[in-house]
């Protein structure tokens, strides 16, 4: 079965943030990423934003008020990437 965008994101989160004892499969798609849920912190947010830009070529603008919503969970991140990224990087 082909890897979904959500699965790619979970792997990216674990790899880019060096969550060595977190299994990507354990991350729930709709679970909060920051503070609660996975418990990422603000520095993680910086690194995740950079990793997503490198992997998918999309970034939010510095003052985008949607940042909090976009980075809320794997699902919201996937929705944002599907809407913004070039189709070739999603294949």
């Amino acid at each position: 079965m082909a890897e979904t965008l959500e699965d790619r994101l979970k792997n990216l989160i674990v790899e880019s943030l060096a969550l060595e004892d977190v299994d990507p499969a354990e991350i729930r798609t709709e679970e909060a990423l920051f503070v609660e849920g996975l418990g990422l912190d603000s520095i993680d947010a910086l690194e995740l934003a950079l990793a997503i830009q490198e992997e998918f070529g999309v970034a939010t603008s510095p003052d985008d008020e949607r940042n909090r919503e976009i980075f809320f969970s794997v699902k919201t991140l996937a929705d944002f990437i599907r809407a913004e990224a070039d189709a070739s990087v999603l294949e």
């Binding site: 880019s16 943030l17 060096a18 969550l19 060595e20 004892d21 977190v22 503070v35 849920g37 996975l38 418990g39 990422l40 912190d41 520095i43 993680d44 690194e47």
Partner: peptide, 13 residues
């Protein structure tokens, strides 16, 4: 946080 402590990987920061 408790969740942060799950991570033992170095260099993430």
């Amino acid at each position: 946080s408790e969740a942060q402590d799950r991570r033992i990987g170095s260099g993430a920061g």
